[in-house]
Design a protein around this nucleic acid. Structure first.
Length: 807
RNA sequence: GGGAGUUUAGCUCAGUUGGUAGAGCACCUGCCUUACAAGCAGAUGGUCAUAGGUUCGAGUCCUAUAAUUCCCACCA
């Protein structure tokens, strides 16, 4: 028996434990039910989960629960991404150690220990918010299975010349001391100074003006560019120019159309490398390479007296010297957007280092990514546009090397004499070349090898999660039979990185899509335009506080808001909404079940019209709700069933309760008919709500329905409409009765009398007068009408006198 | 500069193939009604960003403009 007020804290914890103990969400290895497999994005282990994570996860969880309740066997793992820079930084901070001071294995071991605690707290949070993942199917992206998959992927691509090594200058973060992918860069508005310098012509015939924000790059100046159309400067083209402060360096004035005539002075110095354009010029004009800044952001030897200074200090010193020596003739303070590393917000430099790349950007490949994107089912469809736009703009191959110590190592050694790469044997993976030596011989005759010290970017592993899930490293046939997986979900920010790269890897390795469906959720915004992030983890809207204050069901209710894929604004008021529904479900169930205590469900010989109506009405809502789930619209689904449920409570229960209370007045058949309808409708409603609100629905199911339905959890029951006899007219007729009841209430409200106050008589004219007459006992009871008459005609209600309440 | 969203009630948002503008919250008026006052009943509230166009008919389709968000490019 349900009693008292609903206690979400006790109840939620109770069923969360029960689900884990009973293995309700476990993937059944041997099952003849169809499998539905989900490539859960492994969250990055770097701190605490926040409502933003839960927003995406819980919406996907609802779709997963819907699939489970269609009778499918769910493969729904929960992995963790912990092989990347964020985890390395976390370990360094928490343990007070520096990664590069320890052997890789040792640091990885410490990391795995630390990460185990974080994983557990993430897992606990996922359980506490009602996720139905199978916790036994998890993986860490730094564990052996993931390393093996990732290394095998790399070797496979390298053997096929899809992965290649090159010393392309690429973005470099001096703070993190690693190269970073262009996709990991962000723009940041920074204050800076435009310095106008006079460069002296080598022949002593004058000076030319050049504006720069980065004078510390002067030692790396390798050429001067003007626009070929710019007549002002055509006289300088081909002449040699002395670099200020470094006058031993003479560079040539060249022309290139990329120079903006009206930017700065219209003359640019090209340094290796100030920005992407410098890189392009360097390559195109085969300019020399001068590295003015080292890995850690300090000036190199070519900077002469500035060597060893941090670039910012050098900039100051150089500006002072430029002033002193008369090169600087003007300074303008400006604000400009600078590319920064998204992790640490440090401005990036370009550094020429040997890096591994994966081919992604030829026109043929780009077309392939477009075709694959078109084959994939996008939810919502509009997200495809972002993917297409990104693919069409792809102009660089995917750099996967990172000069870090923690991560998945490249299983490769280079010949000490000729430099040829030699790869580990696939059967030996995972391999760390720093601790294992290569036992072969190079074709050049050498048997001396240098191990690769770089590790792979975390995306190189994150992009093979389908292969990790489908056991590609151990059994290619098994993998082939399990791919594509059914569904992956992710935030809209990583369509371009994660999704595209996963598609690329699946294409290269399996020749298929990684998944059939891709769900792309929006962001939780803390305020207009401000994405919720770790910084909000400790606010009063932290996930922990939200769970304490409202419980998982209420939070999930909030997550299933509106159209899928849209951003939402987080607010206390908004989250509160779900409480009303949870409370209502509790009270309505408590009430309805109190009339079903000595009841064995069986179809009665006679079903009264309004009971028949509510069951048909439920089926209508059932169809609308399941259609919305089929369309991956969790918010619409929730709205559909909620709309029905509220109508069920406020209209149907009000009607039925009279017959349930007083069988001596209305007859035992009238009670049994209502009991049958109540049993079926409440069970049906709970099953549909179980997708959004897994806890309260389980509580009520276990309290009453389980004894009749058998399944050990409501989450293992299968969705189905109520079996009813066809009756085309019933919904319209019943709706009219509901409408009449509403008009009676309106009449009472306008007359400011209580709903229980009796009315002497009501005369109804309606085209459905026969149906109305057939349920006159229900209308009279719910409306407090003493005498009801009906006749055929245009819809109209005529009220008699109000009977004064007895004192 | 190129592209993609968004703009609907005081607030947060729905609005499917073009056909009488919706919900929740807030506000207001009533009601202690044998589940729920954290409830129930009812009422108020909109020039659908602006201006054109197509159409018998436009929140919905087309064009332009504005505000706002995001992505890409540029950023010497």
């Amino acid at each position: 028996m349900l009693e008292g007020k609903y206690n979400f804290k006790e109840t939620e914890a109770k069923w969360q434990n029960y689900w884990q103990e009973k293995g309700v969400y476990k993937f059944k290895e041997k099952s003849n039910r169809p499998t539905f497999s989900i490539d859960t994005p492994p969250p990055t282990v770097s701190g605490e989960l926040h409502i933003g994570h839960i927003y995406g996860f819980s919406q996907a969880d609802m779709y997963a629960r819907y699939q489970r309740m269609l009778g499918k066997n769910l493969y729904y793992p929960l992995g963790f991404d912990n092989n990347g820079l964020p985890t390395e930084l976390l370990v360094e901070k928490k343990k007070g150690i520096r990664a590069h001071t320890l052997p890789r294995e040792e640091f990885t071991k410490i990391a795995l220990d630390l990460v185990a605690d974080y994983n557990q707290s993430y897992r606990d949070m996922m359980v506490r918010t009602g996720m139905s993942c199978d916790l036994n199917l998890g993986y860490n992206t730094i564990d052996n299975r993931s390393q093996k998959t990732s290394q095998k992927s790399f070797i496979d691509l390298a053997m096929r010349n899809i992965a290649y090594r090159d010393n392309k200058p690429s973005p470099w973060c001096c703070k993190c001391r690693t190269s970073v992918a262009t996709a990991e860069l962000e723009d940041k508005e920074l204050d800076s100074i435009f310095n106008y310098l006079n460069f002296r012509l080598a022949d002593g015939s004058g000076t030319i003006p050049i504006a720069t924000t980065r004078p510390e790059f002067l030692p790396a100046c390798v050429a001067i560019f003007v626009n070929p159309e710019d007549e002002r400067y055509s006289c300088f083209v081909g002449k040699m120019v002395k670099v200020p402060l470094f006058e031993d360096n003479e560079v040539k004035v060249l022309t290139d159309a990329k120079v903006g005539i009206d930017k700065g002075t219209g003359i640019v110095m090209c340094c290796t490398f100030g920005d992407q354009t410098d890189v392009e010029w360097w390559r195109e004009y085969k300019l020399p390479l001068k590295q003015a800044i080292d890995d850690g952001g300090r000036m190199t030897e070519i900077a002469g007296k500035y060597a060893g200074m941090k670039s910012a200090e050098a900039r100051k010193a150089i500006i002072d010297d430029l002033k002193e020596q008369g090169y600087l003739y003007k300074q303008d303070a400006i604000t400009h957007a600078v590319k920064v590393h998204e992790r640490c917000e440090e401005p990036i430099e370009f550094m020429a280092k040997k890096q591994w790349f994966i081919r992604t950007s030829t026109p043929e490949l780009k077309q392939k990514w477009v075709d694959l994107g078109n084959e994939l089912n996008w939810h919502p469809e509009s997200m495809k546009v972002r993917y297409m736009a990104w693919v069409n703009n792809l102009n660089q191959d995917w750099s996967i090397s990172r000069q870090r110590y923690f991560g998945v190592p490249f299983p490769v050694w280079y010949c000490a004499s000729c430099g040829k790469p030699h790869f580990a044997d696939i059967k030996d993976l995972p391999v760390n070349p720093l601790s294992t030596s290569y036992n072969g011989k190079c074709e050049c005759g050498s048997s001396q090898f240098e191990p690769e010290t770089d590790v792979m970017d975390t995306w190189a592993t994150s992009s093979v999660t389908p292969q990790i899930n489908c056991n590609w490293a151990e059994d290619e046939q098994e993998c082939a039979s399990r791919m594509p997986m059914d569904m992956r979900f992710c935030g809209r920010d990583i369509i371009t990185t994660w999704s595209l790269r996963t598609i690329i890897k699946a294409y290269y390795h399996q020749g298929t899509l990684p998944w059939k469906d891709l769900m792309v959720n929006g962001w939780v915004m803390a305020d207009k335009g401000v994405k919720i992030s770790k910084r909000f983890a400790n606010s009063k809207m932290s996930l922990k506080d939200l769970l304490e204050n409202y419980g998982a069901d209420v939070i999930r209710y909030w997550c299933a808001n509106g159209a899928y894929g849209r951003d939402v604004l987080l607010s206390d008021d908004g989250v509160k909404d779900g409480y009303k529904l949870v409370n209502k479900i509790w009270n309505a169930s408590k009430f309805v079940l109190s009339f079903l205590q000595d009841y064995t469900p069986s179809k009665p010989s006679k079903i009264l019209p309004m009971d028949n109506y509510i069951m048909h009405k439920f089926n209508e809502a059932f169809n609308a709700t399941t259609k919305a789930y089929q369309d991956v619209e969790m918010g619409y689904a929730k709205t559909e069933i909620e709309k029905f449920f509220w109508n069920f409570c406020d209209n149907y229960i009000e009607i039925a309760k009279n017959r349930l209370y007083k069988p001596e007045v209305y007859g035992i058949e009238a009670k049994e008919s209502a009991q049958w309808a109540c049993y079926n409708v409440l069970l049906g409603v709970l099953k549909l709500f179980a997708i959004t609100l897994p806890h309260i629905t389980e509580e009520i199911y276990q309290d009453y329905f389980r004894a009749f339905e058998g399944e050990e959890s409501i989450h293992l029951t299968v969705l189905s409409p109520i079996k009813v006899d066809e009756d085309e007219a019933i919904i319209a007729c019943g709706d009219e009765v509901v409408d009449i009841v509403s008009k009676i209430r309106q009449f009472k409200s306008e007359n400011k009398i209580s709903m229980k106050t009796q009315i002497e008589s009501l005369d109804i004219t309606s085209a459905n007068n026969e149906f109305i007459a057939s349920v006159d006992y229900d209308i009279k009871a719910v409306g407090g009408i003493k005498k009801l008459t009906t006749s055929n005609g245009e819809s109209n209600l005529t009220f008699g006198a109000i009977v004064p309440d007895e004192q």
